[in-house]
Design a protein around this nucleic acid. Structure first.
Length: 343
DNA sequence: AAACCGGGGGA
DNA sequence: TCCCCAGGTTT
């Protein structure tokens, strides 16, 4: 057996979790259920949900014939309810196509909804002791650190390398214990921040530990270059100091908020401004950039002072002239509020 | 405020 | 094949 697996198993014998509810009794249905729950939630949270679930639906057949509402009620509080539906659909498929049992065949297992490569491997290893690797978030963290693998684990090239190592390191003996051990290590010692390397059975051979890179690995998700969009914001101000606001649509950013009328360039801005009010002068204010999660918005504010309102605006429910007090009571995007306060 | 997470599904 | 998303928790 390779030294990595041997050290991990020795640690597991002394410190691993051997009393989890899905380990006693250990069957494929219970392992499957626990793995799906653990995809989204930590062990301590999962335990009461798991116990309630198997008390109500102790076997695959019970799950297959249960009301969908019952299944969702048992899942209630865990989030990702789509997975509860996948779970039940998979159980129904097993009743129809696999004699009421989870298949022992990897491809048949991974074909079921909600079961991918890692969950299929976990079920085969934990329930049947077959030698299949797993690669969940814990394992990715342990392997990137131990082997010093750089690059975001979500990138396909990195993930491919990780699967190769996961496979190579998985021993043919005690596969179920090994699988539990590497997940336990990632969950208890090799945690995301401030790992407890002093207690780790793998620290002697760990590249990240040796090179002081535990805080750098696994590599963070690359911050993708976000596109920049340009917009001109029209500040139409009348003699009383009121500013024209426009309510944004339901789609897109700032939906339903009151904001400034916008145009895609200065030319369109002029034309738009004249449709709203009688205009004779404009002043370009300093542009600024507002950062969203998915794009950057470069705003060029254009101030039209001394505007005289067109009468028809009074009838338009998405346009209104507002003084500062009225603006305070409306929902405005933060950068727009800041911009208007600086006038 | 942002990262995280296994699998599904759309680009 | 790549990339984004869900939806609640952790940092």
């Amino acid at each position: 057996m390779n030294p990595f697996a041997a050290a991990l198993l020795a640690w597991f014998d002394e410190h691993g979790r051997k009393d989890l509810p899905w380990q006693h009794p250990r069957d494929a249905y219970r392992v499957w259920l626990s793995e799906v729950m653990l995809q989204q939630t930590q062990v301590v949270t999962v335990i009461p949900y798991f116990q309630r679930f198997v008390a109500a639906l102790p076997g695959l057949r019970d799950l297959a014939v249960a009301d969908e509402d019952t299944v969702l009620a048992l899942w209630s509080g865990l989030g990702y309810y789509r997975r509860a539906r996948f779970l039940q659909r998979a159980a129904q498929i097993c009743m129809e196509k696999h004699h009421g049992e989870l298949p022992r065949d990897f491809d048949a297992l991974a074909d079921l909804p909600g079961i991918g490569r890692s969950t299929a491997g976990a079920i085969l290893a934990q329930a049947y002791g077959l030698r299949f690797p797993i690669l969940d978030g814990n394992v990715k963290r342990v392997l990137t650190r131990y082997l010093g693998i750089h690059g975001h684990p979500g990138q396909s090239a990195v993930e491919k390398v990780l699967w190769q190592h996961a496979d190579a390191l998985t021993p043919a003996q005690r596969t179920a214990d090994y699988t539990q051990a590497i997940m336990d290590l990632g969950a208890t010692l090799c945690v995301r921040s401030k790992p407890l390397c002093e207690n780790c059975p793998l620290s002697a051979g760990c590249v990240a530990r040796r090179d002081g890179l535990t805080a750098q690995l696994p590599s963070a998700k690359p911050t993708k270059a976000v596109p920049t969009r340009d917009t001109v914001m029209l500040i139409l101000r009348d003699a009383k100091g009121r500013v024209l606001l426009e309510r944004r649509g339901e789609q897109g950013v700032w939906s339903g908020l009151w904001s400034l009328p916008e145009a895609r360039d200065q030319d369109h801005a002029w034309r738009a401004a004249q449709s709203f009010a009688s205009i004779d002068d404009a002043q370009a204010l300093p542009s600024f950039v507002h950062v969203f999660s998915h794009y950057r918005l470069k705003v060029e504010p254009l101030l039209f002072d001394g505007a005289t309102a067109q009468q028809r605006i009074a009838d338009n429910p998405t346009l209104r002239w507002c003084n500062p007090d009225e603006r305070a009571a409306l929902g405005l995007p933060a950068p727009v509020r800041t911009l208007l306060q600086q006038l």
